[in-house]
Write a protein that binds this DNA or RNA. Structure first.
Lengths: 332, 332
DNA sequence: CCTCTCGTTGCATACGTATGCTCACATCAT
DNA sequence: ATGATGTGAGCATACGTATGCAACGAGAGG
């Protein structure tokens, strides 16, 4: 049924291996022959079989992206640049979403991937261990795991959060709350640590009553903020674990009838596109996540093709972006 | 390096084909042997090679999803349910994003997919033609192309739009504008046709000056709405091609200082999650896009495994959901 | 004129699994 | 006791490409 390299070989009057070499532009094939082979291939509409190629070469040129919650806006914005970056290197992105930790690694391995980009690892995940044991190269994107070292692209939250904290304090905020991400993610942890450190640096500490933890999603941000706003001494400024949680915070404030920023100020983290929309205008900590995705792609390709001794840890700087949702503290 | 079925066979004291059959639970293998093989496979940590399997069986159990603009929120919400649906049938989703129309088909074919789900087809796309010529099964999701028939899941916009139009007219709106999607997409066309028909049914017609077309994204919705609001006789109600464009419309109104809904009413299409957020409260036309994604997955699997004679065209009903962004018309 | 080298092509085979066919053996009816 | 039936496993091979190695011819150098 399908056209194989043998069919092309027959038409071009050469052997099958010559077809294989000619189409991959092997220098050992004469220009003359290459042209003949290419013409024959085009005439027949020949398309090389990935399966045959994978079996023979042992490589698939496919890279897996492991994400648990695809619904999360953040990852939508990551996939496109990552896809494009890998494409320029001749690799293809394959999406994997699984929730259970144990079977994931097996499926990644079974799928004959050349490498895996881990985007939603939890700190205690065993997936990196399994991949390492199998010799399947992988790269951490955004989050890292504790058990195994590897190439990684991470965000350095300190600078951006320090600026945000300073600005918040300057605006008179003293009762400061936090709606943070899960403590079993490296991002959740590092942002919390950086926030506490930035406050401590100015002699302020987070009141434990005003801190909440939850998944990095809108519903969690909504619920946690609703709780905080209902408190006797509600915070006048709330730091959120990411923008998506901050959307939830804005919703909760609206539902509670607390105006933003006059009743409460909200600060996010990520600077996703909606943060700069006129109807949202979210103050947030920004970093170049598109560049970060591309860098993760580059690290992945380098890991596969060059197997460097050292692991690269690329950090991305953060900056504070002030928008409408931050204003002077008002005592209610 | 890697463990093959031959290694398992040696350990279990059987032949390689028996391993292949035992692990796929072939009834021709005795329970006793199966157990021995499974134990040996587990002991060695054997994972079947996708490449070998694909080459031998001619099937990959991989299905491609072709999307041009991944950034579009709509598709983020589609991918997860589609992924899950295919997974339950033992298939895996592979994301393909390409902009050029010509090379796409080749890459889809080359990748040894069992089938393709086309999510962002334009009406005049040749991809369906190429796929048909190759005998690669495919399904239309949401949009369809004109040239080739195939299984399809589509939205029937008429009912929802008729209700929305009736409600808008009841609220006194007469100057009605439209910020619509591209005319080379079946969704763009069918929504425009349904809107015009619904208005015509009530003896109203769209003023050509108040109609704009553009890509299904926030920026386009923003730009078009800004134009409409700047007109002498600006519309009091604007229908948008989808929710994402409606976000842009809301932004444009905010920027222009026109309050929503008191200055202008906005109606979207899709009912994505943000539409029901307290800070947005977008009136919109809803349908069950999660179910639609799952149905597309089911059609795809059925097409691959049963090759039915007839093509299925599954329609999804729409309903109008009234929220804050629609109110009585006010003359400015 | 012989040998050596270089450039080009073909030959043989490996990659790992699935499957049609054969075959051995046991069970059972005749 | 013999043939028929059925069960379970092995043998041989196919799938399509890539690659190490051999081979071939031409040209160059001695």
């Amino acid at each position: 049924m399908a056209i194989t390299s043998r069919d092309v070989a027959r038409l071009a009057g050469v052997s099958q291996p010559t077809v294989s070499r000619a189409l991959r532009d092997d220098p050992r094939v004469s220009e003359d022959t290459k042209k003949r082979v290419r013409d024959a291939a085009a005439l027949l509409g020949y398309v090389p079989s990935e399966a045959g190629r994978a079996l023979s070469s042992g490589r698939t040129r496919r890279i897996g992206l492991l994400v648990t919650d695809l619904d999360n806006q953040f990852y939508s914005h990551i996939i496109a640049p990552l896809h494009r970056e890998l494409e320029t290197h001749g690799y293809q992105l394959v999406l994997h979403t699984e929730t259970t930790d144990e079977s994931v690694a097996e499926r990644l391995i079974a799928n004959g991937l050349d490498g895996v980009i881990l985007a939603t690892t939890t700190v205690e995940s065993v997936v990196p261990l399994r991949l390492r044991d199998r010799g399947l190269p992988f790269v951490y994107f955004n989050r890292t795991a504790a058990l195994v070292d590897a190439d990684a692209t991470v965000v350095a939250p300190s600078v951006g959060l320090q600026d945000a904290v300073d600005r918040g304090l300057a605006l008179g905020h003293r009762r400061i709350g936090a709606v943070l991400g899960p403590q079993n993610t490296s991002t959740g942890r590092s942002r919390e640590r950086a926030l506490r450190a930035a406050l401590a640096d100015r002699g302020v500490s987070l009141d434990a009553d005003l801190v909440r933890h939850g998944p990095f999603d809108t519903d969690a941000g909504d619920a946690a903020t609703a709780e905080l706003l209902a408190l006797e001494g509600a915070p006048t400024l709330i730091f959120c674990g990411n923008d998506v949680m901050a959307y939830g915070a804005l919703n909760a404030a609206r539902r509670a009838g607390v105006p933003v920023p006059d009743g409460v100020s909200i600060i996010g983290f990520d600077d996703l596109p909606p943060a700069s929309w006129p109807i949202i205008e979210l103050s947030t900590i920004a970093y170049d996540y598109v560049q970060m995705a591309r860098e993760a792609g580059r690290l992945m390709v380098r890991r596969i093709e060059e197997r460097p001794q050292e692991y690269a840890h690329v950090e991305f700087a953060t900056t504070f972006i002030e928008r409408r949702t931050l204003a002077a503290a008002v005592t209610r």
